[in-house]
Design a protein around this nucleic acid. Structure first.
Length: 92
DNA sequence: CGTATGACGTGCA
DNA sequence: GTGCACGCCATAC
């Protein structure tokens, strides 16, 4: 894999329980601002349960995709105490 | 090396 | 608020 994907996985792995980061934020921290879409691709191909990819959401607050279904993604987030309002995630 | 792909982002109708 | 067209970028072929 590429260096970028490794940095992305490292960053996502460090997202604390109950917190979220947008695909764009992760991309920027990984050193490639604007590569939000590429981050999504990496999450999609990720199979490591150590990586909490359900904590990576869209920048507009909507959940975004998930291998086990966006419904499950939201369920996990709520279970962690993440605040939702009208199917949108509220950051604080 | 050119083309295709997609868990995105933004702007605009 | 909703939908859509485009641009973007790392990857896979």
């Amino acid at each position: 894999m590429g260096l970028f994907s490794e940095r992305v996985r490292r960053i996502v792995k460090d997202i604390p329980r109950g917190e979220t980061m947008s695909y764009a934020q992760v991309a920027a921290l990984a050193g490639s601002p604007g590569a939000a879409r590429a981050v999504g691709n990496i999450m999609k191909s990720n199979r490591d349960p150590e990586i909490p990819c359900h904590r990576v959401i869209r920048s507009d607050g909507t959940p975004g995709g998930y291998n086990q279904g966006s419904t499950e993604k939201v369920r996990k987030l709520k279970e962690e105490g993440v605040i939702l309002s009208q199917a949108k995630i509220i950051r604080r």
